[in-house]
Computed example of a mutant assay.
Amino acid sequence: MEQLLSPRVNSARLGNYVAQKQPVRIVGKISNFSQKGDTALMTACDGGEVKIMLNAGHNMVDTFVEVIGTPIDPSTVRYISCTNMGANMDLKLVNDVVELTFDPKFQGRLF
């Protein structure tokens, strides 16, 4: 996966990228924003919780988003940007795709 600029991960795989400080993409459902608006809590596609450290210019408006960010620790990402994905999404399907990208039999063939 080293050739990818920002691999898609779930909450279980997020910790693998902390030491590298490599941007990742994580898809999930935003469950709430902090009162200050500087953090958001996401339920990732595998059901784990991820804290998103936001900046003042964030554009998160939909329920489901794909966040590009830098992992701070195994459960926290510093926001770089996001893609709003609407109000409905099959997170199980998203998680299945994420897991397939890490399957050795597909490395270099599809992903």
Rank of each mutant, 00 (worst) to 15 (best):
I72C: 01
K51E: 09
F102K: 00
A12N: 08
N32I: 11
L100I: 10
G48Y: 02
L91Q: 10
G37S: 05
K105N: 13
R78D: 04
V27M: 10
L100T: 09
D103N: 15
V27R: 14
L100F: 14
Q35S: 15
Q20W: 02
C82E: 04
L4S: 15
G47E: 06
K29V: 02
K36A: 13
V27H: 02
T101I: 11
R109H: 07
N88T: 14
M60H: 01
E2I: 05
E49H: 06
D96N: 12
I80G: 04
L100C: 11
L100M: 14
K92H: 07
G69K: 05
N32R: 12
A12I: 00
Q20V: 02
M85G: 00
G28N: 07
A56H: 10
Q20Y: 05
A40T: 05
T39E: 07
A19C: 01
M85P: 00
G28S: 07
G57E: 13
K36S: 15
N95C: 04
G47I: 03
D46Y: 00
P104H: 09
V97Y: 07
Q22A: 08
V18Q: 01
G86S: 07
S31V: 15
N16A: 13
I68N: 12
A40H: 04
V18M: 02
G86L: 07
P71H: 02
L14I: 11
M60I: 15
P74D: 09
F102W: 03
V50R: 03
N16M: 13
N84T: 03
R109E: 08
M1L: 12
M60A: 10
Y17A: 06
A19L: 10
D62C: 08
P74R: 10
V50N: 03
R78M: 07
V24F: 03
K105M: 15
R8D: 03
S34N: 05
F33D: 04
I26W: 01
D103R: 06
